[in-house]
Structures are given as structure tokens and as C-alpha cells.
């Protein structure tokens, strides 16, 4: 863990910032709800929750429509120049021709490690962002493989999917919240203890539902990586390109000294969009956004 401390630090900073933001918003709503319920009736708390649902929905909508801008800004990427990043442009133009998708906007982020991500709500508003490390270390075929993988994410509307799951998980947690809250009020109002077991089960379900939804979405995200790899091969007709790019990424994961110097902050929400998990968890588990690289290579080799 300690070798990527600075890397993690930056992420933590970002997390704290967004967490604080959520806390402030939430506190505001609770305060408002408290004031209103103090004046009128505790049942008004419900009304506040409805408002908070509308608010979070509009928040999600905004992030949906500006997802690519947010993603680009959060990694500090700059627009790619057609002269300096000529290889990048050529690779993307080739994949545009091979996939029949519109040309995405191109960005480059300063980083030594090989990685890339795509964002945008639909192919017309797509962006592809790549690290300078990827541009320097990958040859033409490998670069095309990586770009093809990202173009597949765009073509498969994976970004839209990720946004929808975010909304879904958000809604599930809000509903559980409402339920738990009502339960609390209910049990206070009438002192019935007859169906205590039912209440206990309901509480457990309400707590576990958001976690379960998260796990399901991560499992789907891993599946989507495989399908993006497959489409990438369909676009390039040359699986060795992507295989050797993944191999290079894997070797990089094994020697993490480089990332020590990395100062790039990857927002966690972006992780599923990268070609390889930017957080490089050593242990593959239920909370991984990407399948293990070896497995992806094996699947690709069979194509």
C-alpha cells in the first residue's frame, strides 16, 4: 500500500472534498427538514426526502450531460494537438473509420503509466483521453488496440450505462433511507413489538440493498470490459495489438515504483472507463471494476 501513497493521497483528497460537499448538502436538507417538522409535524420529513430525490436526480442529470467535461477536468487533461500527438490522432482516425463512429474529442494527460479512458453520454459527445506514457510506450498496433477498446466503450454506450447504474444505486439507497426513517418514526409512535422479526429483516434488507446493487453493477462493469475487448478486436482485426498492450500494462503493474511519482488523481467513478483499473488493486475481488488482466489476455488469445 505504501508505495502508492501520494497517489492514494490525491484520491483521498478528492474523496474528502466530494464527501464534504455531500455532507453539507445533506446537512442542509436535514436542517431544513428538522425546522419544518419542528414547526409543523414530523411527517414533513417525508416531503423533504422527496425534494432531496429531485435534487439528486438533477445532480445526476447535470453530471450526465457534462460527464465528459467533468472527467477531463478531474484528471487535468489537455486537448491533444494534431502535430505533437500525431500518432494518437492517426490511431483514433483509423478506429473511427473502422467503427463508423463520429470522431471523438481527444485529450492527453501527463502521466508515465499506460492508461486511457473514454467518456461522454453518447458517441456524438464522446471524448478519449490517453496518458503521455501510453503514447510513448505503445507502438502503432498496441495504441490502436487501446483506442479500439475505448471506442467500443463509446459504441456500447457504457458511459450511459454507468450513469444509469449510479442513478439506480442512488435511488435504492434513498428508498432504503426513507424506509429506515419511517420505521424509526413508526416504532416511536406506536409501541408495537409483535412483528419485530419482520422489522429486523426489513432493516437488514434496507441496509444491504444498496451494497448488493453496487456489487451487481461492478460485476456488469467487469463483463463490459470483456465485451469492449472483443469489439476492439472486431475493429482492429488484430488481437495481438491489444494483447501486447495489456501485457505492457501488466508488467507496469508489477513494478509500481513509477507510480510513486505520479500525481494524477483519478476519481473513483471514472475507474470503469479506463482500459485498466487505475487503482491497481493487488487482489481481485467483488469490488473490482475490471477483470484480471491475465484473464483478459487469455480470452483475447482465444479469438
Amino acid at each position: 500500500m505504501q508505495q502508492r501513497l501520494s497517489f492514494e493521497d490525491e484520491i483521498t483528497k478528492n474523496k474528502i472534498k466530494s464527501f464534504l460537499l455531500i455532507i453539507i448538502i445533506f446537512a442542509f436538507f436535514v436542517l431544513l427538514g428538522y425546522v419544518i417538522s419542528f414547526v409543523f409535524d414530523p411527517s414533513y420529513f417525508f416531503f423533504i426526502m422527496v425534494i432531496s430525490i429531485i435534487f439528486s436526480l438533477s445532480y445526476v442529470l447535470v453530471s450526465y450531460y457534462y460527464s465528459h467535461n467533468i472527467a477531463i477536468a478531474s484528471v487535468g487533461a489537455k486537448p491533444a494537438s494534431p502535430i505533437k500527438h500525431r500518432n494518437f490522432f492517426h490511431a483514433v482516425e483509423n478506429m473511427v473509420l473502422a467503427s463508423g463512429l463520429p470522431m471523438p474529442k481527444l485529450y492527453v494527460m501527463e502521466s508515465n503509466e499506460i492508461n486511457a479512458f473514454a467518456s461522454g453520454r453518447n458517441p456524438r459527445n464522446a471524448v478519449i483521453c490517453i496518458t503521455t506514457g501510453a503514447l510513448n510506450k505503445l507502438n502503432k498496433q498496441e495504441l490502436e488496440g487501446v483506442i479500439a477498446h475505448e471506442m467500443s466503450h463509446i459504441a456500447n454506450y457504457d458511459i450511459r450505462f454507468m450513469t444509469l447504474t449510479t442513478v439506480l444505486i442512488g435511488m435504492i439507497s434513498i428508498i432504503s433511507q426513507i424506509f429506515l426513517r419511517n420505521l424509526w418514526f413508526a416504532s416511536r409512535d406506536r409501541e408495537e413489538r409483535e412483528n419485530a422479526i419482520f422489522f429486523l429483516i426489513a432493516i437488514i434488507v434496507a441496509i444491504l440493498a444498496p451494497i448488493a446493487a453496487q456489487l451487481v453493477s461492478l460485476a456488469i462493469s467487469r463483463k463490459r470490459e470483456f465485451s469492449a475487448d472483443a469489439s476492439a478486436v472486431k475493429f482492429t482485426r488484430y488481437s495481438p495489438g491489444l494483447i501486447s498492450a495489456l501485457q505492457k500494462i501488466k508488467n507496469e503493474h508489477l513494478s509500481p515504483e513509477q507510480t510513486n511519482k505520479e500525481k494524477i488523481t483519478y476519481p473513483k467513478a471514472l475507474a470503469p472507463l479506463f482500459i485498466s483499473d487505475p487503482f491497481k488493486k493487488k487482489i481481485q475481488n467483488l469490488f473490482s471494476t475490471h477483470p484480471p488482466i491475465e484473464e483478459r489476455i487469455n480470452v483475447l488469445k482465444k479469438m
Binding site: 492517426h90 482516425e93 483509423n94 478506429m95 473509420l97 473502422a98 467503427s99 463508423g100 482485426r237
Partner: peptide
Amino acid sequence: SAIEDKIAYARQYYNDA
């Protein structure tokens, strides 16, 4: 040579279509 690549990919897409 870049154009050559592009022609190849465009033809591939044409055949896909």
C-alpha cells in the same frame, strides 16, 4: 502510409456494413 492504413480500415468498415 497513414492514408494507406485509413483506406484499409475504411474498406474493412465498408465490408462490415
